[in-house]
C-alpha cells in the first residue's frame, strides 16, 4: 500500500488546484456556509482524488507520453533527453518507408510492409467477425432462446471460453494444432491433411487457424449478449405475430432480430474495437507467426517497440492504433449507435 499512497500524495496538488478553482466563484453569505462549502469541496476531493490521481498518472500520462515518444528516435535504454527529435518520420516509416530516398526502399520492406500486413489482418478480422461470428451467434442465440432440458448448462458451457485467459486458450490450441497433434490426426482420419506448411506456419491457412481460435474464444460473448437481449423481447409481440400466422423464421426476422438490434450493434462495436487492439491471443500463438502471417498492429508494436527496442517507432504504431480505434469509435457512435440513443425503445 505504501507505494500507492506515495504516488497518490506526490500528485495530489492537481486535485487541490482543481477543487480550489471550482470553489472560487462561490461568495460566502456567512461564515457557516463558507465552511460548509469548503467542507463539501474537501469531501469531493477526498472521494474523487485517489481515482483521479491514479487515472491521470497511469492511464492519461502514459498515453500522452506515447504521443511524445513517437516523435523521437529512441531505443528506450539511453536517456530520453539524448533522443533525437525526428518529427513525423516514425509515422512516415510505418506508412510508406520514410522520407529519406536513400533508405526508403529498404525501410519499405523492413517496416512499412509488415505494418500494412499487420493492419490488413486487423481489418480482415473485423469483417470476418461480422461475416462469421455474427451469424453463428445469432443462430445459436435464437435457437437457444426457448425452454429445453439442459439449456442453462448449455449457456454456461458456451460462454466459458470467453472467461478463460487468452494464454490458456492459446496454449491449448497450440497443442491441438501441433503438426503431430490431434487436429492433424482427425484430418487424416477423414482422408485430408493439415495445411502444407503446418496449421500456424502455412502462409495462407495460418491466418484462418488463428481466426478459428479467435472465434472459439469470443463467440460466446456475442451469444450471451444476444440471449440477454432476447430475454427482454416481449412475448406478447411474438404471440401476436404467431396468431397472425407468422412462422418461426418470420418471427425471428421481423421481430426478434430487429428488437435486439441495439444489442447487436453494441456487440459489433465492441468486436471492432477489440479486433483493432487484438494482442494477447496472437502473441501467445507464436507472436503473430514466424513470418507475421497473422500479426496484428498490437503484436507488431510489441515486436518492434519492446523486443527490438525501437521505442519511438513502436510508440508511433501505438498512436496509429489509438487513432484508428478513436476514429472508428467516433464514426460508429455518430452514425450507427446514434439512432439507438435517439430512440432507445424503438427498433428501427
Amino acid at each position: 500500500m505504501t507505494a500507492l499512497e506515495a504516488s497518490g500524495r506526490s500528485a495530489s496538488p492537481a486535485v487541490d488546484s482543481s477543487s480550489a478553482a471550482g470553489s472560487r466563484p462561490v461568495t460566502p453569505a456567512s461564515e457557516h456556509t463558507r465552511r460548509a462549502t469548503v467542507r463539501k469541496w474537501a469531501e469531493i476531493a477526498l472521494f474523487v482524488g485517489p481515482a483521479m490521481v491514479l487515472f491521470l498518472t497511469f492511464v492519461v500520462y502514459p498515453v500522452v507520453s506515447a504521443a511524445r515518444f513517437s516523435l523521437y528516435k529512441w531505443n528506450g535504454v539511453s536517456q530520453f533527453s539524448d533522443a533525437e527529435f525526428i518529427g513525423l518520420e516514425n509515422y512516415a516509416r510505418a506508412l510508406f518507408g520514410g522520407t529519406d530516398p536513400v533508405t526508403q526502399q529498404a525501410f519499405t520492406t523492413a517496416y512499412s510492409q509488415p505494418f500494412w500486413e499487420a493492419l490488413s489482418h486487423n481489418v480482415a478480422i473485423i469483417f470476418l467477425s461480422m461475416a462469421v461470428q455474427l451469424p453463428i451467434a445469432l443462430i445459436v442465440a435464437l435457437t437457444l432462446n426457448r425452454r429445453f432440458r439442459g439449456r442453462a448448462f448449455t449457456r454456461v458451457v458456451i460462454f466459458a471460453p470467453y472467461v478463460l485467459s487468452e494464454v490458456i486458450a492459446g496454449t491449448m490450441w497450440l497443442i491441438i494444432f501441433d503438426p503431430n497433434g490431434i487436429a492433424t490426426e482427425l484430418m487424416r482420419s477423414v482422408g485430408l491433411d493439415m495445411p502444407a506448411g503446418g496449421w500456424f506456419e502455412d502462409q495462407t491457412w495460418g491466418f484462418w487457424t488463428v481466426f478459428f481460435i479467435i472465434t472459439w474464444k469470443y463467440v460466446g460473448l456475442a451469444i450471451i449478449l444476444f440471449l440477454a437481449g432476447l430475454s427482454g423481447v416481449s412475448e406478447d409481440l411474438q404471440e401476436a405475430a404467431a396468431i397472425d400466422g407468422a412462422s418461426w423464421w418470420q418471427i425471428q426476422w421481423r421481430i426478434n432480430i430487429p428488437l435486439i438490434g441495439p444489442t447487436i450493434r453494441i456487440w459489433a462495436f465492441l468486436s471492432i474495437i477489440g479486433s483493432i487492439q487484438l494482442f494477447d491471443m496472437v502473441w501467445v500463438l507464436n507472436r503473430g507467426g514466424t513470418a507475421g502471417q497473422y500479426s496484428t498492429i498490437a503484436s507488431y508494436m510489441m515486436e518492434i517497440g519492446f523486443f527490438r527496442a525501437d521505442w519511438g517507432y513502436g510508440s508511433a504504431i501505438a498512436v496509429i492504433m489509438f487513432f484508428l480505434s478513436f476514429v472508428i469509435a467516433l464514426a460508429y457512435m455518430a452514425t450507427i449507435l446514434r439512432r439507438d440513443n435517439a430512440h432507445p425503445r424503438k427498433a428501427r
Partner: peptide, 20 residues
Amino acid sequence: IFTTGLMFPLTVAVLPLYLL
C-alpha cells in the same frame, strides 16, 4: 475525463507505462 479512459487501451499505453 474518466470515460475517455475507455478509449485508452492498455496496449496503446503499455510502452510508456513500463518506463514510468
